[in-house]
Design a protein around this nucleic acid. Structure first.
Lengths: 255, 255
DNA sequence: AATCATTGCGTATATTTAACACAATGAAAA
DNA sequence: TTTTCATTGTGTTAAATATACGCAATGATT
């Protein structure tokens, strides 16, 4: 029974490989059908969900750990990451499970996994269609949820999510977004809907277009979106050089 | 020899009371004689300096730990705190000391203090004149330094300081500042110099005054600054209610 | 009484934001 | 074929905000 062995080793020996008392929690945002989505996991036999997370190997950079964790959950490499806050509440434990989870498992009462954890929060922006959600060893499902219709989250994960979203809202007023979140080619309405969804408010179509074009981060292609029953919008790609540059300097306006 | 015992216990037993692998580093800003200052410590017999820091007790909220640490270093309670980033580099150890530090000390080679640390960075804003800098048990001096003339800092503390200052610069464009940093009564030029020092650039005197007054966070007193050889500026206090409110909502302009 | 650095308030101009008008497009309907 | 219609691309205008100065008032110092 390989699973049993793995779990027992993780609980009983994990502190030898991972930094104890420190966990990573990730809020993975995707955009699909004009909705902002978040990736959640749920435990076997437990009806509350949790954010994808994990631990830092003793010889691993923290950010490398986050990328490793997210690659395991999504299949993607090269994910946009942003550390937004670290959570140090007193009653934080890395997870909860129903008692029956431990049935047939030989796990020490003083396992590092039952200790208090300080958790470093990252949010990630990914291209929805490229993600293959993969549950981790402790969970059963890994699914997307609309940010407006989240299930009950365990621990303080609802709070972590709220802080992540707020941080993201703040971020997009100062830095470009969309690369990593939209397909390679997209239209101006697509981009606008992304902004509207994250900011959770309507924007003026015409002013939005003018501002975005003024930033210089967009390339307008000599193509329009096919198969629309009205005037077809141009397709755009991001001007990567300008995009990367603006990621560092920020742009001066707010939407 | 009480000191010897204390140090040995801290190194050899500390992991029983503190969360291992996690440290706190604080960038304490003060303002004095129109200069932005930072509080630094230095080790006995070591000529590089470090930021004030410490560890989290197992039954203590993280933010409580930060306040405890800062109260120990400054004598102040009720300090403005802002968590700005968490540092997870691979080669982070909580401290370095010269070999001779361990002379006559019985310290285990595998002490928790030699492990790798993830450090949560906070900056603090304090009223310079009220601070009584107090070295910690491992250090000899605790002194203020002009941010433009810092000594060599150990580990990645220079990087941590840079990030803190940048975060503070960003912050003051959106939220009020000055309370906790200026004396109770201050003049408009005082406040402006504070902003100029943090932002590291000149601001127009007249526009600054107009904007600050428009925020409503200032009370103009029926007093002027005494003992000046020219037109005496009004004294102000902060309107605490409005200040607190704006701390939550932010104000809409940038300087 | 004159000097002078500095303050408080005002104004003129440029820049940015917000709100809206209108022709162009092209598939779908008539 | 022609008309309809939702939607796009661009332009225009008014309001709000930011920036750059002008100038009289102040009050210790000369």
């Amino acid at each position: 029974m390989e699973y049993k062995e793995y779990i027992e080793k993780f609980f009983n020996q994990g502190h030898k490989h991972y930094l104890s008392h420190i966990s990573i929690d990730c809020v993975v945002f995707g955009f699909h059908e004009n909705e902002l989505k978040v990736l959640l996991l749920n435990m076997k036999n437990l009806n509350s969900w949790v954010l994808p997370g994990g631990f830092i190997l003793k010889d691993e950079e923290m950010e490398t750990a986050v990328k490793r964790i997210l690659t395991e959950r999504t299949g993607l490499t090269d994910i946009f990451l942003h550390q937004f806050q670290t959570f140090g509440g007193l009653s934080r434990s890395s997870f909860t499970v129903p008692e029956l989870f431990f049935k047939n498992l030989q796990i020490k009462k003083d396992s590092w996994m039952f200790d208090r954890f300080i958790s470093v929060g990252y949010y990630a922006l990914v291209e929805y269609s490229k993600v293959k959600p993969i549950p981790d060893i402790l969970s059963e499902k890994c699914e997307w949820f609309n940010v407006h219709d989240l299930p009950e989250l365990a621990h303080d994960h609802r709070h972590i999510f709220d802080e992540a979203w707020q941080s993201l809202r703040f971020w997009i007023n100062h830095y470009p977004i969309g690369y990593n979140l939209l397909p390679e080619k997209f239209t101006m309405p697509d981009l606008q809907k992304l902004y509207e969804t994250i900011l959770d408010r309507k924007l003026d179509r015409r002013n939005f277009q003018r501002k975005m074009l003024a930033t210089g981060i967009l390339n307008r292609l000599n193509e329009v979106k096919p198969g629309v029953a009205h005037k077809a919008p141009y397709l755009y790609t991001f001007n990567i050089a300008a995009y990367e540059k603006t990621l560092k300097t920020g742009f001066g306006f707010a939407l």
